Amino acid sequence: MSIRKNLDISAYLVIGPENTNGRPVKKIIKDAVEAGFTCIQIRSKVASARELIELTREAAEVIALLGKSDNVALLVDDRLDVVLAARKQGIKVDGVHVGQSDIPVDVCREYLGEDSVVGLSARTHEMIEYIKTADVSGIDYFGVGPVHETMTKPDCGLDTDGKIKTRSFEEIAEIVRLSKIPVVVGGGVKVADIPQLARTGAAGFFVVSAVAGADDPKQAALELVNAWKLHTEAGRKN
């Protein structure tokens, strides 16, 4: 079955070699998946295409060794060329995540096919209007943020005036209400944010440094996953 039909973005790790404090990317991915993370995105602005393909291969192997290839989606940020080259080499990569200024969603969909995952980050200042008007038939989820300013992506939330605009939980709840597709929220998210974030109705959270930069990535990942499960289940009961 296509992972697109079974996509789980509840616990979503974005990771590249610049985020790990010198530790192997694949080790942190292993810790996160063992802890219950459901989606992995390879993202790097410093790695070459070949390095990104190798990181994708290592991530796919880790996920396969844990028996999670049918449950944990593996995506690459921005680089449709890397996804296509990885697939040509037999690497199981499930799709791509793009921004509004990256390769258009319809082009990604054309090249990757209907079984692939395509996620989109809309620009912060346009997000609500975009969600109201966008054709989402080719998109699987929206990435929304930041909740806090974050050094791992300093331009995240950059508004037209050059200032960072963070998202309140009230705004996130409104975006979730308006969106026809699932919404995953990140940007400096920490365990303390999870209770409020879960109440917005978002489909999940994404993190970089909260896991990749943690002293104990596995423990940090477990705390995030457990908090999300606890507060989403509590919300369903109420």
Rank of each mutant, 00 (worst) to 15 (best):
A134V: 15
D159A: 15
G138W: 02
K218A: 11
F206V: 09
V136K: 07
V147C: 10
V207L: 13
A221P: 01
S179G: 08
V184S: 15
S168T: 14
L120N: 13
I172Q: 09
I131F: 07
A122H: 00
Y141Q: 04
A198I: 01
G113C: 14
V176R: 10
T166K: 07
D159H: 03
A210W: 04
G162L: 03
E223Q: 08
V144L: 03
E233A: 10
Q196A: 08
D159P: 00
D155F: 02
G188W: 04
F142I: 14
I175P: 06
A122S: 13
G138K: 14
P217M: 10
D161R: 10
I181N: 06
G162P: 02
Q219P: 05
A173T: 09
L112G: 11
I164D: 07
D155N: 12
I131H: 11
L230G: 01
T166Y: 05
T166W: 04
K218I: 03
I164E: 07
V136H: 03
P217R: 04
T232Q: 08
K163W: 02
I175W: 01
G188I: 07
K229D: 11
V183N: 02
A234Q: 15
C108A: 14
A202V: 13
E171D: 09
P146S: 10
I164P: 02
A198C: 10
V176Y: 11
D115A: 13
V191H: 01
D216S: 11
L178A: 08
S137I: 13
L120A: 11
K132Y: 07
T152Y: 05
L158D: 00
E170I: 00
D215A: 09
W228M: 10
S179F: 07
K132I: 08
G188R: 08
K165A: 14
D193S: 06
V208A: 14
G143V: 14
A210D: 07
L158N: 10
S209E: 01
A198N: 08
T232V: 15
M127K: 00
P195M: 09
F206H: 09
H148A: 01
C156F: 11
E233T: 04
S116E: 08
A221V: 11
V136S: 11
G113H: 11
D193E: 11
A122D: 05
